[in-house]
Design a protein around this nucleic acid. Structure first.
Lengths: 301, 301
DNA sequence: GTGAAAGCGCTAACAG
DNA sequence: CTGTTAGCGCTTTCAC
């Protein structure tokens, strides 16, 4: 098996210097069209591909971004990464993914991120201040999701949860005239037991507002178990608008977070920062929109 | 702002040669413990991190794997990548993700994968024979998911769909004694219209076996629309066991594909191949298990 | 338009 | 145990 061809192999084959080969592959004008064509021709013949490692070292950049998420699963991550990947691809960038509930300077993998990437998106639940501070001091481009880092002049992307929650609550109050609305929040499987407790109350709520759709699903299951019909006897609304929300029985009223959009915007913001490191601090919000379906008590939509 | 410290900076600060610094960072025994400790100490003081690009170039490896998926979204991808990431992390490897419905040698991003990674997992729907053949010829480690590549001695990972489908069908026939079972297959939103057509038949099926859970959800929605109760009037079963399957009303009977496991195994197989390039061709199957719930007509489980 | 040569930061013989 | 030195494959001035 022959050695993998390098720039030298190709240069020799084409009867040119390695500088010329380099020019042929990088959109340089300082090369004759016919020369480039010939080099590219031979390159594909012998199966030459420039080494990314060598290029990275020479150029001092990796054309790679890292995405750190608390848990690599669930619809949130899924949509986010889809958006993020579409943009990295557009810019000929690459995307590394990591799962880490809290970003910590102790994590060996996170430590090496700055040497492997040109920027980091931190979507973790917790994020050690030390770690962020280290990145900041190094002048390394990063973006923390959903949280404003105290005392640091950084940019930040977060969904406009307040507006979404406000509009949904107003909907419950104004349109359905519910007086007793319970709000439940917690880990993604806790909706069932929370709703159970609420349903066992003598003074039952008329509506349950769950902090996320998974909890809302759990709440609906609990209601069914208690022989309580949704939405006739109890309204249940969620938050996130996961893909299956619309297929549930009843279809779930919830708040859409434009997660794909968040992925897109995160990457765009980060790429901006990479090009222009000294951008002013700023909070960018992504829109949240009401998805009125059946579980709140509304008719077919 | 001072320059980013390199191995030279650190060597000078510590009063040693760069070779010694290198040894301190790579588990080499040919270095005194005290020396290593001192170097590591100074390193963290000045914030030195070895350059991955330089390391990659020198070592001729990237410690990175690529995962190419048809669509970066949906529960399948989500679970798979979670499994994959857990193993890459375990081996101090990194994971790049790409979305591409068909892997083609024309795709510029896919072209450069061999220069950026040590191995590729191809989970695409279609995969150009030329592309695979090129990888094969280069002796580049790769793994095609769910499909045996004709004429090429490669290893392959696929779920044991046959057994899963067989067992589920037997369950419908043997336990529930259904005589008329319809099978529907197609894109993930097509379950609704397919089921509609079946329900409009004068000779309605007793059960619908959907090729995936999303279609099953659509089928259930169509049944509801027609005033047809599931499972009393019509049994509906799916395939995949997506996370929400158990929360549906009725809870969906389906086949679990151990997707997390597939992610884990893919990475493990690929890493094996990287270490030992000439492994014999072989088809590795991951288990499929029946998830009997309510939608097939069974009682509470 | 093209070539020669220095340099990117690290690893790995080899010598001591 | 530690230092010297030659690469790894590419980009980029600087000559010509």
């Amino acid at each position: 098996m022959s050695m993998k061809p390098t720039i030298y192999t190709l240069a020799k084959q084409a009867g040119v210097s390695i500088a010329t080969v380099s020019r042929a592959f990088n959109s340089s004008t300082r090369i004759r069209d016919t020369t480039r064509a010939r080099i590219l021709e031979i390159a594909s013949e012998i199966g030459y591909q420039p080494s990314a490692s060598a290029r990275n070292l020479s150029l001092q950049k990796t054309e790679t971004l890292a995405l750190v998420f608390p848990q690599i699963s669930g619809p949130y991550f899924s949509e986010f990464i889809r958006g993020a990947e579409s943009v990295t691809r557009l810019h000929n960038y690459h995307l590394l993914v990591y799962s880490s509930p809290d970003a910590n300077e102790e994590d060996p993998l996170l430590r090496l991120l700055p040497s492997r990437t040109d920027g980091i998106i931190l979507g973790t639940h917790y994020c050690s201040y030390t770690y962020i501070h280290q990145l900041y001091q190094q002048g390394f481009p990063f973006l923390v999701l959903g949280r404003i880092v105290p005392g640091l002049m950084t940019r930040c992307l977060r969904p406009d949860n307040e507006t979404g929650a406000y509009l949904l609550t107003r909907h419950l109050i104004d349109l359905h005239a519910y007086q007793k609305i319970a709000f439940i929040s917690g880990p993604e499987a806790s909706g069932f037991s929370a709703a159970r407790q609420l349903l066992d109350l003598t003074d039952r709520p008329q509506a349950i507002f769950a902090a996320n759709d998974q909890m809302a699903i759990g709440a609906i299951a609990a209601a069914n178990e208690r022989g309580c019909r949704v939405p006739e006897d109890l309204a249940v609304v969620g938050f996130d608008d996961i893909p299956t929300a619309r297929y549930l029985q009843p279809a779930l009223t919830t708040v859409n977070l434009a997660i794909f959009d968040q992925g897109v915007q995160s990457v765009e913001l980060l790429l901006e920062q990479i090009v222009e490191p000294d951008l002013p601090a700023k909070v960018i919000t992504t829109p949240t929109t009401l998805m009125i379906r059946r579980s709140c008590g509304c008719g077919e939509v």
